[in-house]
Each structure stands twice: as structure tokens, then as C-alpha cells.
Nucleic acid binder design. Structure first.
Lengths: 263, 263
DNA sequence: CGACCTTTTGATTGGCGTCAAAATCTGTGG
DNA sequence: CCACAGATTTTGACGCCAATCAAAAGGTCG
């Protein structure tokens, strides 16, 4: 179990040069403010796959901007079942959400090797209260998270197994295209996809067994295939239809840029 | 169908005298700023029960602070099914969440008579960008909403029907105690409860028929009764256990006040 | 190569949805 | 105050989707 503080330190890099800044917390912040933010930043860190970034109910030492890699946010129940709350991709801001006890409401584990920028928690609060642009941006990102969570709630309660699988595959596909271009292969309509069937099940409330059956069915129908940590979309229109996908509530969009709502 | 603009106007009241300010957007904002906020406020309005405050996919003219009454936020699917995203109670801020198309992602309808304060949407944006305290507060409220939504997601996917009903009844009970004291009867451990079994089903993904069966079972077990727009908790400890309730992710807490996490 | 994780397939079970109908509650107007 | 329509609650019978249990096959990594 490797925690944030045990992760090896790296040379800090300027946030303004971060390639994910368009979707990140500090996008839209002016250069002179960025310099000030840089002073808040403590360290850039790198974690291997399948490590804990922070534990459920642990005291929040840092909040993080994810630069590269996949991170799963999850919560475990008393009965041992686990719910994936969000798959964090490059540009996402992690660990800011606390419960009434001041501890993390959920845990975070890396699904791949990941690079993050850590901010001491109290400095994040300071940053937010002193820099309106950051508060506004964080607000925007939170509102987007709510939309995505609402969509997951609908997915979980109002759709059958096949539609659920279709939905999360398609959503993840679009999010990766926007937030992690290096994981996207435009020629094949494919993305790198490190989620096991067990994880997929924990995202939408199905057993790994039933996830497998649905993936088989979608493959048999020539809609998508999911093999070897690779998700390939064969019939996007059909998939959109099956998933009843709503493009208006997709992942965060960088403000000021007018982007096709689908990407 | 009565919309915001058709609602009859009332004499504005000062937000700083609003009795729900402890949980509301403007709590923690200093008096001189409140005066400025008051200038942004357009109107106080009152709606009867079962009216649309705003429609799904409509253009957002206002955002609202709910002063009094219950409002359901919902989203309808292509197949006609409906998901309740949140039951808004006094102090909640509504209508701020937009999709990529700039339109409301969900609809809002009153469950009871309701009193609201309407802010022109563009002025809300102005307010947020100019007043760091408000941006921070909105951020805080959004993060709380995410927590609650996460909890609903867990409830929907990882709990059986009885646990689901137990969960939403208990959560609503606590939220009403904090946000709408006049709907709370401490002597009987009871609250005013305008939700029909159909609404309960739409909140957690059950049919009204099955909701009814579970309510019957919980009543037979002497845990709670739900009759005549009144929810009574008979065995709180047992209910907490059944629902596997997590007090850390409960409704917004007013900052600066140190409150028992349970209320 | 061997241990472990992940995927795959089949048989069986059960919880919740669906359909239907009766009972009860609520509000409205005569 | 009563009559009536519509909404909501209640109960029963039946069917199906997904969970559960079990086991084999394939992949991955030390």
C-alpha cells in the first residue's frame, strides 16, 4: 500500500505548461495568478498501477490534479460491496470532497501508472478563497460532476444491463477522447481501456458474470468489442441509441472554447 | 403550467433576514456584500403545489433560492420513465446546473406550495465571479450535492428494496429536521411528508407497487409508518442499521457552526 | 513453470416488475 | 352535505431479468 507521501518526488513542472490545462482547474486563470498557484503546489508525484492514492475515511493531506493515467474513486460498504463513483482522467481534480467528519468520503486507487500534482489541503482552501477565478472554475467542475453523477444514477436505476454497459463504455470512450488523447486511436475508433469486467460491474451495479454476458451480446451484435485492455466501437450510432446517451451532460468542457457537444 | 415569470410578484424581503440563511448560498457573506446581492435579486415568488418551476431543456432565465416548501428536481427519459434527482428543501439553490447546450439539464416541480427568490441567471454568474465568498459557498454546496448524489448511487445499485426505502425515508427525515423545522414534529419523531409512493419509487428505482410492499413490511416491523402525508420514525436505531446510513455525507452543514454530524 | 487474476459458460434461484382489480383517499362542484 | 371523478394505496398472481453458485479456460506476472 503506497500512499501519497510515500510516492517518490519528481521535479515540479509549471502548471501553465501542463498539457491538460484546458480541462483542468487552472484553465482560464491568468499567468500572474498561475505563478502564485505554483507556490502552493507541493510536489509532482508518480504512482504505479493499483496503488491507493488516498484511503476512505483518511485525513485529507492533499488534493490532486491528475496529469496522466486513470484513477478510480470508490466507496466500500459494510457488506464488502464496492461502488465506483467516478473514473478520473487527466485534468480531473481529486480529493477535495470531504464528509462532516472532515475525512475523505471515498478512496482513490490508480488503475494505471499515474502522474499527479499534489496541493496541501489547507492551501487549496486558501487558494479557493483568495482567487475568485479558481473558485469559479472549481464550481464549474463540481456542477459538471453533479451532472455526470445524475446520469449515472439514471443509468443505474432506469436502464437494463445491456443499456448500462453500452452507456458506460460510450461515456468512457468520449471522455478519453477529450481528456486523454494519447489513449485514443482514431483510426480504429478504439481506446486503451484498463477496466476489468469486475470494475465495470462495480460502476453500474451488475455482477462481473452478467457484465460478461452483456459484453458478449454487444460484440455479437457488432456494436463494440472489449478485449485485451482495448475498447473498440464498431457501430457508434447504434451504441448511442442503445445507451440513450445524453451529450449535454458529458464531461467538463473547457470554458471559452466552443466545442461540438459530442466531444 | 405556471412558469417563473408568470408567478405573481411579492414584496422582496431581505436575504439577511431569511430564516433559512444558515444553510443557504449567502450564509457567511458579510452584510455589505449582502446589500449588493440584494440588488441582484429580482423578485420573490410563490408557487402553488404541483407547478413547474422550470422545464427540462428550457433556457435558464433565473436561478432560485428556495425559502419554503418542497421542490422535486427530475429528469425524464425517452421511454417516459422519470428519475427524481433531488428533493430540494428550504435553503437549497436551484437551477444553476446547465448542459453543454446552455439549457437546464433537469426540470423542477413544486410538491407543495413554495416560496422562492429568483435571481436573473446572468447576474448569478456575475455575482459568483465578483464575490469570492459566494463562489466558495456555491462550491461547498455543490460538493455536498455530489456527496448526496454518490450516496443515492450506492443506494440504487447496492441495496435491496427494503434498504432503499429505509435510506430515503431516513435521509429525508434528517434533512427536513435541519432545513425545514416547521415540518418536523419532535414529540412524535415525525415529519410532514408529501411524497407519494410513486415519487419514492422514482427516487430509488422501484415501482410504486414494490415501494408499497416495502413500506408495509417496515411498518409491520415497527420501524416506520408513512400515512397521510406524514412519516413517523418508530425505531431510529433499527432504521439506521437497515439503511446502512452514512451520516458523513448528509445534507449541507452551515460552515462555522459545529453541529453534531447526525443533524 | 506455477500461482493468481480475469474471462467465460451453464444451471438454478429469487427479487422485483408487470398486469389487474379492488379499496381508499382527495378534491371539486352541485 | 353528498355525489362523483380521479389519484393513490393495497393486494394477489405470474413471469423474467439478473444474482448466485460452480467450474473450467485463458492470461499475466513473478
Amino acid at each position: 500500500m503506497v500512499t501519497a507521501t510515500q510516492a517518490r518526488l519528481r521535479n515540479p513542472v509549471d502548471c501553465e505548461h501542463c498539457r491538460v490545462r484546458d480541462q483542468a482547474l487552472f484553465c482560464g486563470v491568468r499567468p500572474e495568478q498561475l505563478r502564485e498557484i505554483a507556490r502552493y503546489r507541493e510536489q509532482q508525484m508518480r504512482l504505479r498501477a493499483h496503488r491507493q492514492l488516498f484511503q476512505e475515511k483518511s485525513r485529507p493531506l492533499h488534493a490532486y490534479t491528475l496529469f496522466q493515467g486513470w484513477v478510480a474513486l470508490y466507496k466500500t460498504l459494510d457488506n464488502g460491496k464496492r461502488q465506483i463513483l467516478k473514473i478520473a482522467l487527466p485534468g480531473d481534480f481529486l480529493g477535495f470532497q470531504l464528509g462532516n467528519d472532515g475525512l475523505h468520503t471515498h478512496g482513490a486507487e490508480t488503475l494505471t501508472q499515474a502522474t499527479l500534482c499534489a496541493f496541501p489541503f489547507d492551501k487549496v482552501l486558501e487558494m479557493v478563497s483568495k482567487q475568485p477565478a479558481i473558485a469559479t472554475r472549481l464550481c464549474e467542475m463540481s456542477v459538471r460532476d453533479i451532472s455526470m453523477c445524475h446520469e449515472h444514477l439514471i443509468c443505474a436505476t432506469k436502464k437494463d444491463a445491456r443499456e448500462k454497459i453500452a452507456h458506460i463504455c460510450l461515456e468512457t470512450y468520449y471522455r478519453v477522447r477529450r481528456q486523454s488523447p494519447e489513449d485514443y486511436d482514431p483510426k480504429r475508433n478504439a481506446i486503451f481501456f484498463p477496466l476489468t469486467q469486475e470494475y465495470l460491474g462495480d460502476m453500474v451495479g451488475l455482477t462481473n458474470v452478467h457484465v460478461n454476458r452483456m459484453l458478449k451480446k454487444l460484440a455479437a451484435d457488432r456494436v463494440l468489442t472489449c478485449h485485451n485492455r482495448r475498447l473498440t466501437i464498431h457501430n457508434e450510432e447504434r451504441l448511442i441509441h442503445i445507451a440513450q446517451f445524453d451529450f449535454n451532460t458529458l464531461a467538463p468542457i473547457s470554458p471559452g472554447r466552443n466545442i461540438d457537444a459530442r466531444f
